[in-house]
């Protein structure tokens, strides 16, 4: 298992390099000009100079290699400098945003907490709701609970978040006035009342996304439980005189979790990707919103870095899912 993990990690390096090349080429092919939004009064020669100063005059290969160096060497060195205090990075160039001329990684780190709080929390809530619903739905298949659960998850899955988000705003912010419609990222939690406000402003975006996540995961959980509830080993467990709760929550659940854990692990990268639309609806300036504004402004270093970080997360969580699979299922041995 350990060997397998190491081998897969090493194999991830060429995969990620390849992904970064594809991303770079795609962004280069995409139409758009970073100077397009500058005022028209700037003469073309100056614009050309600005383009050259952004490094756009150089050939594609050079630009790609420079990005690689900046991202993989300069940024980690800069990070090390910050924690150790030794001057390791010197005057190495960091990846800079074309919009703000500040380092891309710093901006991402600023935006990350908002996304983690809102989108991450919604994922956790979604999973916590989905698992029991899936288990009970399967155990009491075709009962009222199951019918309602299946119907709600169908709704949650098929109604887009920009609809449920706006619906919640209309009902709870406009009509009832319970929750704020806009997420205030400058809000600082330092006492009880500010904490309550934080909870209040998180409820709606979290619930919108949690419904969507829970809908998906509860269906997986239900299907997986149903696959296992009629297995012979369940009959064996009952014939041993085990309690019904032990039969279902130990014998059936352990088997049913195997595919569900994979689904949950593979869903984690989307948390970091931010729920782009929901962040827009509730004005949460997290990573999703950052990506959208960067795309609109032709801020290629920002888009390149963000999408590449998402790629790293997807590859990493794929690996984690595979390892968990082996941990949960003794029949799977990767050697």
């Amino acid at each position: 298992m350990f060997d397998y993990t190491i081998r897969r990690t090493l194999l991830a390096i060429p995969t990620l390099l390849f992904i970064s090349l594809i991303l770079f080429l795609l962004l280069d092919l995409a139409p758009g000009d970073p100077t397009a939004q500058l005022p028209l009064t700037i003469p073309p020669e100056v614009k050309e100079k600005i383009r050259e100063s952004l490094g756009l005059g150089q050939p594609l290969v050079i630009r790609y290699l420079l990005w690689l160096q900046q991202f993989f060497v300069n940024e980690p060195l800069h990070y090390l400098t910050e924690i150790t205090g030794w001057d390791l990075s010197g005057d190495r160039q960091r990846v800079l945003s074309w919009q703000s001329r500040s380092p891309v990684v710093d901006i991402i780190l600023q935006r990350l907490p908002q996304t983690l709080w809102v989108v991450g929390m919604s994922y956790v809530v979604g999973v916590l709701i989905a698992l029991p619903i899936g288990i009970i739905s399967a155990y009491r298949q075709y009962s009222w609970f199951d019918q309602i659960g299946t119907f709600v998850s169908m709704i949650g899955f098929s109604v887009p978040t920009f609809f449920t988000g706006v619906l919640l705003i209309v009902v709870f912010s406009v009509e009832l006035g319970w929750f704020p419609s806009i997420y205030d990222t400058t809000h600082v939690v330092d006492d009880w009342s500010s904490f309550l406000f934080q909870v209040k402003q998180m409820i709606m975006p979290t619930m919108v996304l949690a419904l969507y996540n829970a809908a998906q995961i509860s269906r997986f959980m239900r299907a997986s439980m149903l696959d296992n509830l009629n297995q012979d080993f369940v009959r064996t467990a009952r014939s041993k005189g085990l309690r019904e709760s032990t039969v279902v929550l130990v014998h059936v659940l352990r088997n049913s979790m195997i595919p569900v854990v994979t689904v949950i692990a593979l869903g984690v990268p989307t948390v970091f990707g931010g729920a782009i639309i929901t962040e827009q609806v509730f004005k949460v300036n997290g990573l999703g919103q950052l990506l959208i504004t960067a795309i609109q402004a032709n801020d290629i270093p920002m888009v390149q870095s963000l999408t590449f970080i998402f790629a790293i997360l997807i590859v990493a969580f794929n690996l984690i899912a595979d390892v968990l699979y082996g941990v949960l299922d003794p029949r799977i041995r990767y050697d």
């Binding site: 041993k240 005189g241 014998h251 299922d329």
Partner: peptide, 19 residues
């Protein structure tokens, strides 16, 4: 069940919990 009356089933491949 299992205490005073024991059971053995047909297919030993599937009657034991694999995990």
């Amino acid at each position: 069940r299992g205490g005073r009356i024991g059971f053995i089933f047909q297919d030993p491949m599937t009657s034991l919990n694999p995990v």
